[in-house]
Design a protein around this nucleic acid. Structure first.
Lengths: 331, 331
DNA sequence: TTGAAAGCGCTAACAG
DNA sequence: CTGTTAGCGCTTTCAA
């Protein structure tokens, strides 16, 4: 080598491995710097079996939750010198199978983060067959470790906030898995909504159950149906995501329905726009969930024992979209 | 090998390279499938010099523009069998230098997409030193190829829409580079705003120039100042991003200022929420820009000649946030 | 503390 | 059409 030392020494020096004298290390590092040398990740990956790369599977990279969680995971990875490889299932197009079956499966990543979707039995098998550690973020898949909030409790907190305000006529704007991705989250939230209503002796009216797919546009369309039924309009709407709650606010605004005087709205997420929009919601922190999950995997790669993560925190944030229901016109 | 053929033949068969009989190929593929064999990317990367991975540098992964562009790029990459490695500069924390200097620099990716930020001279040098093809998305950096809309014209279209409606008192909600990332886009848009106003003989009032950083919360705060100056309030606001325009709408709603009757708002982006929000805006398609740029790089990796991409399209989408100005109280 | 040598699992000539 | 043979640029024993 240029420094008059062997490749082995360079390797040790660059990686900060003990067994090199301080003087030699410094000399090597200086030359490395001057030459702009960067080790080939392919070569070191091949030789060592470690790629220093973590894979993250996301159903859709451009949704708020996933993008935010990805940012959090990335933060943890960068701090540890790991690279981030993103496998976007990308909505409809079917590279889902390919992702799970081929490219990522082996020798490309050291660990895998799966964002918030339910997996087929076959995919679960692939996941377990992967010798790399893996974890799911944002969803509580049975049989797989996951990092997520306690969805049932989060829903309960949101709905009970409404009930505590005096609402009895509460509609639910559900989320649905889209593109056949079957997030397990929406189902959980639906069940929790019904359970909470029942626990308080409140009816769950079928005509007050609307479907969106976690997006504002759908939320708006769904809310339109709820709001255009005069004389039979709910006094409050619980939306399974903030983005759908925005849709409700937009639909209400177009109809001149005042929030919160005539209609209360509560969501889940604490989306970036929720604060300026004044939306009361259940806050969760996808970035911290992502970072936490990535950190867990990183620790395992560093030799730590496999741990079972606890539930992530959520919190009711009361803003300006909820208030007691209007006094009934007829009693 | 298990199939009684050489590794070379397996390699050829798996990669679909000519020079293998159909019968052999089929036999090999079947066994490969049965064994669940997946080639090691490190090994093939080392041997071939191609990693089948494209790098994407983003200033912040969780902003709408970047996440959407990333999704588009990913779509193109997956279709070509490439993997996506994301380098998130992640706001403040300074792994910017590390990204440009070390990990990605060599041997980790075959090509590089840089999202929408201005680079230091040193970074430009690193970029060119990279033997891999590269391209910038969303910004027009001098000296580097880029895929983007014609920002000055986009701004002009937005402002002239307002002027055409009869507005003369137009405020500008500027974006600023945040975290020292110095997007070059905001400056361009500022200049274009002033140029357009001047071309129409309209004044650019300093007190009607507000700063946000492309986010709704900032847009709202900045708009507050604009709207709380009674008797000297603009009749229209041009926001350099849709998210800031949402902030304007929220600030107006809180003050009971009706849009578009009392205040017109126009943005740039056509953010996912713009349609349900009824925001008039200049539409651009970050996903297509990302896909286009990735496709260009992919073509070059496949041997195509280096091309200079053209300007990407934008389009005025008139919705419900713009209307003629209110009749002046005094004339 | 350092160097030599043997692979890691592939691909890419070159033969056959 | 298929097999053989060298490496690709590291890491990792094992000696020195």
């Amino acid at each position: 080598m240029a420094a008059g030392v062997s490749t082995a020494t360079v390797s040790r020096a660059v990686r900060g491995i003990p067994g090199v004298s301080a003087a030699t290390r410094e000399r090597v590092l200086k030359i490395v710097e001057r030459l702009g040398y960067v080790p080939s990740s392919s070569a070191s990956g091949l030789a060592s079996g470690r790629t220093m790369t973590m894979g993250v599977v996301v159903p859709m990279i451009d949704r708020w939750y996933f993008a935010t969680a990805l940012g959090g995971a990335d933060r943890a990875l960068r701090a540890a010198g790991y690279d981030l490889m993103v496998f976007n299932l990308g909505g409809a197009g079917g590279n889902r199978e390919r992702v799970f079956h081929r490219s990522m499966l082996r020798k490309r990543i050291d660990a895998l983060l799966v964002m918030c979707m339910s997996l087929t039995e076959e995919e679960l098998v692939s996941l377990r067959a992967l010798d790399s550690p893996s974890i799911v973020v944002g969803s509580n898949l049975e049989g797989v470790r996951h990092v997520s909030i306690d969805d049932p409790v989060a829903v309960k907190d949101a709905v009970e906030h409404l009930i505590g305000l005096g609402h009895r006529d509460i509609a639910h704007l559900q989320g649905t898995g889209e593109y056949g991705f079957d997030f397990s989250v929406p189902l959980l939230r639906n069940e929790a909504f019904e359970a909470t209503m029942q626990a308080h002796g409140l009816p769950v009216r079928p005509e007050w159950t609307a479907l969106g797919n976690f997006r504002a546009a759908d939320g708006k369309a769904a809310a339109a149906r709820l709001l255009d039924d005069p004389g039979n309009r709910p006094t409050a709407i619980f939306a399974s995501s903030d983005e759908m709650a925005f849709g409700v606010m937009m639909a209400a605004a177009e109809r001149g329905i005042r929030i919160p005087e005539e209609l209360s709205v509560v969501g889940i997420d604490d989306h970036e726009l929720s604060e300026p929009a004044g939306l009361t919601t259940i806050r969760q922190r996808p970035d911290e969930q992502g970072a936490f999950a990535a950190g867990l995997l990183l620790a395992e790669l560093a030799g730590a024992a496999r741990v079972q993560p606890g539930i992530q925190p959520h919190e009711l944030v009361v803003r300006k979209s909820t208030a007691p229901p209007p006094s009934p016109v007829t009693t």
